[in-house]
Simulated scan of single mutants.
Amino acid sequence: MIDQIQPAQLSDWITAHAADGATVVLDVREPWEIQTACVTPQGFELVKMVMHTIPARLNELDRNRPIACLCHHGARSMQVAAFLAQQGFTHVANIAGGIDAWSAQVDATVPTY
């Protein structure tokens, strides 16, 4: 099952999965998007991996660590989260609303685009 979490709920999700290892926020946006706006890791490891590269780079991700996927509004990250779940990743979430919601809920200094 893929959890749908709002950016403001991420810290609670991290706490709930703490026994499973350090949480990864997997940013699946394009490099220009990450240059435009990026989250600051607080209590998680930030991994940047463009969506279309994930199948080839799957072995770089730990199947047992909690992974919360992030994109611009939540659609691409939901596709990635579903793909990871199909590949046997056990603790996967989609950050609903993406970095746009992150700016509104968590850190207003993160630009919107």
Rank of each mutant, 00 (worst) to 15 (best):
M1Q: 13
Q4E: 14
I5G: 03
Q6T: 10
P7V: 04
P7R: 01
P7Y: 03
Q9L: 03
Q9I: 01
Q9K: 09
L10G: 08
D12V: 00
D12E: 15
I14K: 07
I14F: 06
I14E: 06
A16F: 04
H17F: 02
H17S: 05
A18Y: 00
A18P: 05
A19Y: 01
A19F: 04
A19W: 00
G21A: 07
G21N: 08
A22F: 07
A22R: 06
T23Q: 05
V24P: 07
V25P: 06
D27I: 07
D27W: 08
D27K: 01
V28K: 06
R29E: 13
R29Y: 12
E30M: 09
E30I: 00
P31K: 11
W32P: 11
W32F: 15
I34V: 15
T36F: 12
A37D: 11
C38H: 01
V39C: 07
Q42F: 06
F44R: 00
E45W: 00
L46S: 10
L46H: 09
L46N: 08
V47T: 13
V47F: 06
V47I: 15
K48A: 07
K48I: 13
M49P: 03
V50W: 02
M51R: 11
H52T: 13
T53I: 00
T53M: 13
T53S: 15
I54A: 14
P55H: 09
A56P: 02
R57I: 01
R57Q: 14
R57W: 00
L58K: 05
N59E: 15
E60W: 02
L61R: 12
N64Q: 14
N64C: 08
N64H: 14
N64L: 07
R65V: 00
A68I: 10
A68Q: 02
C71R: 01
C71W: 02
H72M: 12
H72K: 13
H73S: 14
H73W: 02
G74V: 07
A75E: 14
A75C: 10
R76P: 03
R76G: 11
S77Y: 05
M78N: 07
M78C: 01
A82I: 10
F83V: 03
L84Y: 04
Q86W: 01
Q86T: 12
G88L: 10
F89R: 04
F89P: 06
F89T: 01
T90G: 13
T90D: 12
T90K: 15
H91K: 10
H91Q: 12
H91V: 01
V92S: 02
A93Y: 02
N94L: 03
N94G: 05
N94A: 08
I95D: 07
A96P: 03
G97P: 08
G98L: 09
G98Q: 11
G98D: 12
I99C: 12
I99P: 09
I99M: 10
I99A: 12
A101L: 05
W102I: 06
W102P: 01
S103A: 14
A104S: 13
A104V: 04
A104D: 15
A104R: 13
Q105M: 11
V106K: 03
D107W: 00
V110P: 09
T112G: 01
Y113G: 14
